[in-house]
Write a protein that binds this DNA or RNA. Structure first.
Length: 292
DNA sequence: CCCTGTCAAGTCACG
DNA sequence: CGTGACTTGACAGGG
């Protein structure tokens, strides 16, 4: 079981998601930004190794505007060596990475242009991981998408669109249950038709479920991961008591976390800890697991 | 330096 | 109809 956190390390004085305004785009600016981001990613990975945080979500902003038409800069060729080195570090230390494209990536959108842009963005994610040389267990995780006032049709469109995706995307793409539109059962239905693995978001499951036992559901989710996909990914967060339903907590609630671990006892999975204070909560989980 | 309006991209829910 | 939320604030111009 590997423990990780998303995108940002608050203990370090750098960010791997530095970007700039489209209006100030230039090749020079791109280079400076990517240099900074890759350098920071290297620092984060070293920090993670030192603290036994063996799972990490790499920010989608690592290469700004990578899939935008304005980007004529051949980042793939220019940064192939640097990305290969980062990947070599990840592989040699037995770490796992994943990515989570943002909300604009919707492969089931009825709008063809939204779909086209989504594919470009997914290609960027896939190329980045490919250049790192990390294996198929390094996943690209998305939500199913919008409902568009017709859920069954939108699920069908997801499945049809998925079939047309390039292999380099398909081998990494996984779907995650969300907190209002598509629950685990919807994801399982899509899995039936596509064999796509399912990320189990424990917090979203809590917000959006059909009253079933978590252990039973996870048994099904567990089977959607083939050997080459690695062990399942579980996203974890807890409710911020002061905020609206679905709002992520500021720091980890350990008793809550232990309830989850007990419910999933006997399964093998990696945990992505989606808590506002990032590595701090992930570290608490690492130390709690040592004595669990 | 500090302040703050705005930033590539979509969709839904809430008021 | 405008705004916030989503995995994440932070860029950049003006005072």
């Amino acid at each position: 079981m590997k423990i990780g956190y998303p995108c940002i390390n608050l203990s370090l004085d750098c960010r791997s998601s530095k970007t700039f305004r489209l209006a100030s785009y230039s090749e020079e600016r791109m280079r400076l930004c990517i240099d900074n981001n890759l350098g920071c990613l290297a620092k984060i990975l070293q920090y993670n190794l030192k603290h036994d945080l063996m799972f990490f979500r790499i920010t989608s902003d690592l290469v700004p505007f990578a899939s935008h038409p304005v980007c004529s800069f051949p980042w793939q060729a220019v940064y192939a060596t640097a990305l290969g080195k980062l990947g070599e570090f990840i592989r040699s230390k037995g770490m796992r990475v994943a990515m989570h494209p943002d909300q604009f990536v919707l492969i089931n959108s009825p709008h063809e242009d939204v779909f086209t842009r989504s594919v470009s963005e997914l290609l960027y994610h896939a190329e980045l991981l490919d250049l790192m040389g990390v294996d198929e267990t390094a996943k690209i995780q998305i939500h199913v998408g919008g409902v568009y006032q017709a859920k069954a049709a939108s699920i069908k469109r997801f499945i049809a669109r998925y079939q047309t995706l390039p292999e380099k995307i398909k081998r990494r793409l996984v779907i995650e249950n969300d907190e209002r539109l598509y629950d685990i059962h919807d994801c399982l239905e899509i899995h039936q038709a596509t064999s796509i693995p399912i990320v189990f978001d424990a917090f979203h499951f809590r917000c959006n479920n059909r009253g079933e036992l978590i252990g039973t559901v996870f048994g099904k989710v567990n089977k959607t991961w083939r050997k080459s996909d690695g062990i399942p990914i579980v996203d974890y967060s807890s409710q911020d008591p002061a905020k609206r339903r679905g709002a992520h907590a500021a720091s980890v609630n350990m008793p809550d976390m232990e309830v989850l671990l007990s419910a999933l006892q006997g399964f093998n999975f990696d945990i992505m800890c989606e808590i506002k204070d990032k590595e701090k909560s992930a570290l608490q989980i690492v130390s709690a697991l040592r004595s669990f």
